[in-house]
Design a protein around this nucleic acid. Sequence first.
DNA 1: CGTCATTTTGCAAGCGCTTGCATTCACCCC
DNA 2: GGGGTGAATGCAAGCGCTTGCAAAATGACG
Lengths: 345, 345
Amino acid sequence: MARRSSEVTMGDIARMANVSESTVSRALSGSTLVAEKTRDRILEIARNADFAINEQARNLALRQTRTIEVIFPIERGTLQQVSDPFFVDMLAVLTDELGKHGYDVLMSRSPPWDEERPGCAFLGARADGVIFVGQGRHRSAIRDFARRHASVVAWGAVSADDDYCVIGSDNVGGGRLATEHMLKLGRKRIAFLGDTDLPEMRQRFEGYKQVLASYDIPLDEDLVIHTPFDIEKAREVTKPFVELFPRYDGIFACSDMIAMAAIANLRQAGIAVPDDVSVVGFDDIPSSAHVSPPITTVHQRIRHGGKVMVEKLIGILGGEAQEPEILKTELIIRQSCGARVATPS
Amino acid sequence: MARRSSEVTMGDIARMANVSESTVSRALSGSTLVAEKTRDRILEIARNADFAINEQARNLALRQTRTIEVIFPIERGTLQQVSDPFFVDMLAVLTDELGKHGYDVLMSRSPPWDEERPGCAFLGARADGVIFVGQGRHRSAIRDFARRHASVVAWGAVSADDDYCVIGSDNVGGGRLATEHMLKLGRKRIAFLGDTDLPEMRQRFEGYKQVLASYDIPLDEDLVIHTPFDIEKAREVTKPFVELFPRYDGIFACSDMIAMAAIANLRQAGIAVPDDVSVVGFDDIPSSAHVSPPITTVHQRIRHGGKVMVEKLIGILGGEAQEPEILKTELIIRQSCGARVATPS
DNA sequence: CGTCATTTTGCAAGCGCTTGCATTCACCCC
DNA sequence: GGGGTGAATGCAAGCGCTTGCAAAATGACG
């Protein structure tokens, strides 16, 4: 890396070893076409010379990139949003899984199409495929992109009309699990905290509404609070909401972070969780089990999801069409909604 | 991306536009050497043909990669460790900052030297420089790597004998701040929770010891608990530790996650925070302000740190040597150590 | 010692792009 | 209309690597 100008090339090694470049190439790539003795000698020389193969040239010759671009389409500035542990987990899994298949991971925070690369107005093809971790508000752009550039999978809200491969949790089901759980515990007036502009949140909201309907509970618009992801902002937004108590006795928060923010405000206002109000979150982030009270939450199978995305992408690269997939979610019952459960383990 | 086989090249565009490849190249790169009319025509054609420049070829010709490898040297399997929001924050900043300078980010979870790329025994030079986010247990390997491959900066414990550019928080100072704060509140017997095998934790421990010494408090080895990062494991490890109460009346936890785990166990055992025991964490993760009780913690300037790393690396790439830098830390006082402070804003 | 089958090696073309230099073109002026 | 000028274009080499194919070396064998 670096020091590129003075980098030693295969030609140099060839000269040192008194063989042709091709032989060096073959020796380094472990071809059987080169005598063992020669190979060892070349390897030795290469090692001593600190030779590092130029992967760009290699990939160019091989017509591959062995790189997958992973895009986290997150508005800049809203750093906090990223802090959601979801992203790290996902990134870690993707990196591992892609690594197993021999792919490198190129990170991006913005989608390729709004990239203003100086001096080049064109979308650079720098990867064999693209994974969108979240579709945010640009579904149609992704769709367009997928149509033009084929190998794409995305994480997010799966819907019937996707024309590219989307993998995502069963958000509707998760919303149902959360809401129904509280109703079964005897809660009557469940509030919803989340940003329904985002497709996944909308699905969770959908599950929430479905359950209310099936219990013949009318939707109370005042209990639907548009709450951003960022925990600081969520804290602010839910502050006035707390005042509405006792119009609600249960809260379905679209993420554990939001749940935490709400709980903090409730406690501060002297409202007890879970005694006065039950709270259910979403995500099952690592700390959710260890805060007070431990948060009941909907678990998303992120690791699994990451693996599935990679598998599908590899499939697509191999030329096979791939179906979208919806991953089951699971309710993790903890104290915050009134369960008599002791703290875990 | 993908569909590489059928990808349209500059040659194709040239043929379509009835000009030479060079003209296409110049047109796309916005050179003034091509007539405006021609340029527009070529751009139009390229757009319609869904042309995407092959960056590998481009970079090869330009003898650059415009890529920085960002390495999170994290043991595989211990995914949870990654969940530390620190990593996402850092990654986000690095991606943004490098992006501003026109660099892409290549993610890695393992250092280049233990990479077993099939068919190639050699360290591939695939980036102009490398950023290590954390040095973990392989300082000497990094040092070696830096010596051979020049452009390297690392985040971590800064020590006098570094021979490559290390940026990191003032961990010793942070440890002092945390410990001294509790002593000043009247606590006498402060426990230390953390993994002193890790250089940064060792430095925090160092600060802790310094303060104890300056207060003439002997170090009680039983109150130094080797606690891993992972919150689940931390929970287990600190469980027996809780029993030692009331041998301690304060806890300095090496990370907020550990602090959370400890607090959870304390409360479960009926020990009150901060009334019976003060707790100070480290990191100032987003949720630390919103849990109960809000955690007093040492803030690391991660965003700033990321920026500094990028600046230094750019400097190094430009041929200038760069000094290591230690970033000030700051104590954020919240309720968990007994401060009379209300919850924040 | 010559033959022939097997290794080993080297040659050269090619991956898709950039760029210095030569060439062509259009236009202007005397 | 010829010569000169500057702008626009094309040619060809080269970036560092791979690989099909031909050439050379090796060794077995009659």
